[in-house]
Design a protein around this nucleic acid. Sequence first.
DNA 1: CCGTGTAATGCTCGTTTGGAGTATAAGTGA
DNA 2: TCACTTATACTCCAAACGAGCATTACACGG
Lengths: 360, 360
Amino acid sequence: MIGSPPICFNARTAIRPEPSPASGVERKTDMLRERQLSARIAPTPPVQIGRPVAADLIAVLAAVTSGDPRVLTIQDQRALPSGPFELAHRSMQSGLRAWVERQTRLPLGYVEQLYTFADKDRGGGEQRVISISYLGLTREQPASGEFEASWRSWYAYFPWEDHRVGPPPVIEDVLLPRLRAWAEDSFSARIAHDRWQRAASTFGFDRAWNEELVLQRYELLYEAGLIPEAERDDAGDAPRDPAAIDAVSGMGRAMILDHRRILATGIARLRAKIKYHPVVFELMPETFTLLQLQRCVEALAGRLVHKQNFRRLIEQQELVEETGETSQDTGGRPAKLFRFRREVLAERAIFGTKLPISRA
Amino acid sequence: MIGSPPICFNARTAIRPEPSPASGVERKTDMLRERQLSARIAPTPPVQIGRPVAADLIAVLAAVTSGDPRVLTIQDQRALPSGPFELAHRSMQSGLRAWVERQTRLPLGYVEQLYTFADKDRGGGEQRVISISYLGLTREQPASGEFEASWRSWYAYFPWEDHRVGPPPVIEDVLLPRLRAWAEDSFSARIAHDRWQRAASTFGFDRAWNEELVLQRYELLYEAGLIPEAERDDAGDAPRDPAAIDAVSGMGRAMILDHRRILATGIARLRAKIKYHPVVFELMPETFTLLQLQRCVEALAGRLVHKQNFRRLIEQQELVEETGETSQDTGGRPAKLFRFRREVLAERAIFGTKLPISRA
DNA sequence: CCGTGTAATGCTCGTTTGGAGTATAAGTGA
DNA sequence: TCACTTATACTCCAAACGAGCATTACACGG
């Protein structure tokens, strides 16, 4: 990547628009700037442009339905939706948004770039593919319907990530012993120690569980050869029968290419984000009870939250306001209905919304 | 929890999690995976490959020399180094690393992807360019020498970001009045209010200064038309005379295209990162005193730190170990020399290195 | 040799957060 | 009516944090 050109640094002049990596939410500003920029004249282009590559977008679209965090999948739930990068749009972000909304009729409340990958030969031959992945949040009842897409709980792909009812048995029953075996199967005691160290710290064998290490855990399992995708790659030839791959007990459902890794990246990002940015509301219906909100957060974080503290936090931050109505769904004292105070998005530049996650 | 944009809370430690798609530090895992993936056979390229585009990499290379945070620039300090994306390397990250090390002879201790941009019309006609930006940290005495590259304090580009000796006068003397004028120059009182609200919160007129909002501040100034680059874009034709652009007092040195924006992204990312990940050490020499370390952090954060608390934090986290030697450079009691305990990188999967930033 | 300047260090304090627990109120359904 | 479920109001406590005071150690200049 990056070429060898001795001293060259391109003197390109065209200006690059693009939505803010920070705000995620596309602002008027961005649009504005983009329009202006595209009207500009590029003064001095003469730069050797890199050789052509192909680019496409991959989306991790998340929603939470009845306490279950879901992700939109295609191809028999083995792939994330993706599409070619088109020039038609002002920015990739708006392009992604338009594309998703057209395909699924779901409004995307929030879009954020995740990561850009470059694989050698994917599409064959000389051409290289660049994949730019995005995380998008949408409301409930996805009603995707249309084509071959379907929503699926992301814990189907990462069974070890759901700690809402305590640590999943699969960790101790399957992962722990296999990771230990992997660690011990090393050339040196040093490597064995390091391996075990990593396993213990990412899975919390020796400390508290950290729900944000989704990607690290996946990568560790991959490296340890416990992930079907890894075996497939190792083989160097066609993947084994999908059914067989899925059959690898306890390791979760496999996906094509590195889609599962991208999904892990998205989950990790989202779990981190909800702690300091009020994005959860993008996943909630217009009005909701505090318990519903809490359940949503718990679904994402994969762990429980202390109810009283959760409420204290939400209230003291004035994130929501009462609608005046109440809901008496789940038998029990009726709960007040709330609505997200969108004003806070403007009020505070960036702030931390915190999540009280139980230690127990 | 939750949320979307702002929720306030005290400027205490606000530890911001991070969109770290991975650890940033390239691990064996990554290499491994990439090799495997490239050997893999794509089962069903579910995706039509997009039309060819050009791609290049842009680097924000940072170092801290004698209390000054520097960035590597080219073209008379008006551009960030960049180069075409080539297929020669296993990954973009390793490509970037190799390229930089070859060009500058600087070892990159840490590399992290920042953001990927896509422009319409840049290289002319049909072809579109994708720019993938990276943040790289390197040791002191950059000794770039070689070609037209030079290190430059990043506060030359963002004069309002250095609060180490208190808020820079430029904020109250220049920015505040101009932003107020911009806010008032709106169609509606509502817009005026929103504009002022944003200005006040990002620049801390009505609350504490938040050093992480580098990008938001830059974008705000851009939107307000106070940034030379914006005028240039607005003009719709060739940029004005560079000297004239730089002359815009108080607004910092301009750069080509949106390089300054990318730099802002890098600074913001770094300021956030040092609070929960021990990356500062990548900028330090092999051995150092705690005061030097503190100065480095202060240079990056653009604000002072409480010395005693800083030490307490560093020690209790066992990030460093004594070398046994002392340094008696700056007249005063000789300071013990320390060395970073690299083991911690392996010990803890991710942990928080916290920084005690003074409120005063 | 003493006084002064500059840092390094050690310790204390009071406040703020954040995790947890207890108690009580207010509905539904059997 | 009771049994059950959830909403809500408070209280406690300990760790984390921001700040300040006091003391120790050197270099240097008279």
